[in-house]
Design a protein around this nucleic acid. Structure first.
Length: 600
RNA sequence: GGGGAUAUAGCUCAGUUGGAUAGAGCACGGCCCUUCUAAGGCUGUGGUCGAGGGUUCGAAUCCUUCUAUCCCCGCCA
């Protein structure tokens, strides 16, 4: 059961699993001789020790079985130790503390991981997820009304790393971006472009307070003008005739902008209006796609919201809810009784005027995802969306799907600092820092790493100065430097006229006996479980922290032991170990979207 | 008012099946370059794990109450 075949290799079972097997044998033996009740169902836990003096692994099995066995824990541990089968993995065992069993593993059995790494290379540590459920990860999904800002950046880095981790753990993954290309905001956007276009044509007007004021709107308007000339120009008096006044003039800004949208549609016709709407959408979406792709964030699918309404998915989803008996009418509106599933209040899905709500699209989109065959759908949202979880879970159940199949991870916003200075981030004034600006200033590697170095639900401080610094203070450079150092050793090795003899190195791993060497080997052996745990819990920060520790162990080793030495066997063993470290650093960095440079 | 998140060293944060003496980086002391990149290493100081109660062999971790900070609570998108 624990053996799984991949293209590259048969998995070597983790040391932990093998030790658990030994304990299971001992428990069986004690059941057979009556020390333990025959119906004992042991939950065998083997954990990594925190303190090296406690050996490599420890089990609390005697503590958990003491009660059913009616035995003193230490006494029981002693009996288990006596019943433990012989194994050449184990150097020695100890009974410790209140009844822990500590396992000290032989150097040879741990060092075997070095050969495994060099054989499996990029496949090392992969494919161990317990569940291989086909999973869709939807993330970023920012409205295409403007460039991505630094808040989206964290969702992008987090989502991409989670997806890559899942894939590495052997879970089939698809990455998707939901393009909100329908709805009022998009109409405001299209109309904003048209108004700028009118200005370009020479009109003088007061731009609506609720319109999109960014510089990119002018650019899009200019592009339309270049392509179509002034054929969509309209007399400004005609445009503004009977439009309710804007907020600064004492009116309502929403009413004002809605009237302008209707006027644009009326004066331009569907085709003409579509020119502006699509110019805005295409331009901004292309910009977002370029931005993300430059950030190393790639999708299998860009899913259009407009498609949902045009192909009847929204109606179909509402019909399903109707058939299942969860819709009702009140005051002309159609409601979804989400309170049946624990939501705070019921939700409108279709307004009295016939327009379906945004939530109705979300329900249709969810149904669509399941109909495409995904076993699990993972949503990555900004923390401000946590209120949507209850209604989406409710919709999931009302549609007849197990709510466990819908998962949401919330990402807190990052606060940018430049040294001590906190950077203001006002969306209102349009002066927010864009993701592209951040990437340009800090670089993709530092951005990707910094964003995922903290737990997603943690508020985080992102210090630009630290991210840019090229010193050990900066964890990205610190880890990359460890990788580059190994490459440098290889270069020096060649210059010295020695060749790296891998076979000799593998044959002489037993020579790697210093504390630093043993620590580094042990750390390398943990990579598969770190990768798997990080993937299964959707927590890439676990990998980021691991890489920091691995780099630290390597730097310590490098500093304490010279590799390019006359003694060929030890030289080869050391170079072999550092190559294994390089491979794992490379694998891990790649999963986080960070480059592993050969030279700094 | 209701709901959620967060609270661990001076600062930023780990601590993921409840385990033994709570860790890392930064900052602040001390030390290590005739040595493969010192872009590095070693080492010291530093803690009432927000507060109180509970669960048990054992709690930073689970339950409960409270406090502080942030976020959400529209027929918006």
């Amino acid at each position: 059961m624990l053996f799984e075949v991949t293209l590259h290799s048969v998995f070597i079972r983790l040391m932990k699993e093998q030790i658990a097997q030994l304990i299971a044998s001992a428990v069986d033996a004690l059941k057979a001789d009556g020390t333990l009740p025959g119906d004992t169902q042991p939950n065998i836990m083997v954990e990594n020790t925190r303190d090296k003096s406690h050996g490599d692994f420890a089990s609390n099995i005697a503590l958990t079985l003491a009660k059913p066995a009616r035995r003193n824990p230490r006494e029981l541990a002693q009996a288990l130790l006596a019943a433990l089968p012989q194994s050449d993995l184990i150097e020695k065992t100890e009974l410790a503390g209140p009844g822990f069993i500590n396992f000290f593993v032989t150097q040879a059995s741990t060092a075997a991981v070095v050969g495994q790494i060099l054989t499996e290379q990029t496949a090392f540590g992969r494919g161990r997820a317990a569940s291989k459920a086909r999973t869709q990860v939807e993330f970023v999904s920012a409205n295409p009304t403007g460039p991505l800002h630094v808040g989206h950046g964290r969702g992008a880095a987090y989502g991409a790393s989670v997806a890559d981790l899942l894939e590495a753990a052997g879970v089939p993954v698809e990455r998707e971006y939901y393009v909100n290309d329908a709805g009022r905001q998009m109409n405001i956007l299209g109309t904003s472009v048209w108004l700028r276009y009118l200005e370009k044509c020479g009109a003088e007007l007061t731009f609506p307070s609720n319109g999109y004021k960014g510089a990119y709107i002018h650019d899009i308007a200019a592009a339309v003008f270049d392509q179509h000339g002034d054929q969509y120009n309209r007399d400004i008096a005609q445009v503004m005739a009977n439009i309710p006044v804007d907020e600064p003039q004492g009116g309502d800004k929403e009413v004002h902008i809605d009237a302008l949208i209707e006027r644009a549609k009326a004066l331009l016709g569907d085709a003409g209006y579509g020119i502006f709407f699509n110019a805005a959408l295409d331009s901004i979406l292309a910009d977002i796609q370029d931005d993300l792709s430059g950030f190393g964030v790639n999708y299998q699918e860009w899913f259009s919201e407009r498609g949902l309404t045009s192909n009847g998915d929204v109606d179909s989803a509402l019909n399903t809810l109707q058939e299942n008996g969860y819709l009702f009418e009140k005051e002309g509106n159609l409601w979804f009784r989400s309170t049946d599933f624990g939501d705070d209040k019921d939700r409108v899905v279709r307004r009295a005027n016939g327009a379906t709500t945004y939530f109705a699209s979300d329900i249709a989109y969810l149904k669509n995802k399941f109909e495409r065959g995904f076993d699990k759908v993972l949503y990555i949202w900004g923390a401000d969306h946590h209120g949507y979880i209850a209604r989406m879970k409710a919709a999931c159940q009302a549609l007849g799907y197990d709510p466990e199949r819908l998962m949401v991870r919330l990402v807190q916003f990052a606060i940018l600092y430049r040294g001590e200075e906190r950077l203001a981030m006002s969306t209102r004034s349009g002066s927010f820092v864009t993701l592209r600006e951040l990437r340009d200033e800090v670089g993709n590697d530092a951005c990707r790493f910094f964003y995922v170095t903290r737990k997603a639900e943690q508020h985080m401080d992102f210090d630009l100065e630290l991210a840019k610094s090229e010193s050990k203070d900066n964890p990205v450079y610190y880890i990359q430097y460890a990788h580059a150092r190994v490459c440098s050793v290889q270069r020096k090795l060649k210059e010295s006229g020695w060749a790296w003899d891998k076979e000799s190195g593998l044959a002489n791993l037993a020579l790697l006996n210093t504390e630093h060497e043993k620590d580094l080997i042990t750390k390398l052996s943990k990579y598969p479980e770190v990768l798997t745990a990080a993937a299964e819990s959707y927590e890439p920060h676990m990998l980021a922290n691991y890489l920091r520790e691995l780099a630290n162990d390597f730097h310590s080793y490098y500093n304490a032991n010279k590799m390019l030495i006359e003694e060929a066997e030890l030289r080869n063993a050391r170079v072999t170990l550092s190559e294994a470290a390089r491979q794992v650093l490379n694998n891990g960095l790649t999963l986080l979207g960070v480059n592993a440079p050969e030279q700094m």
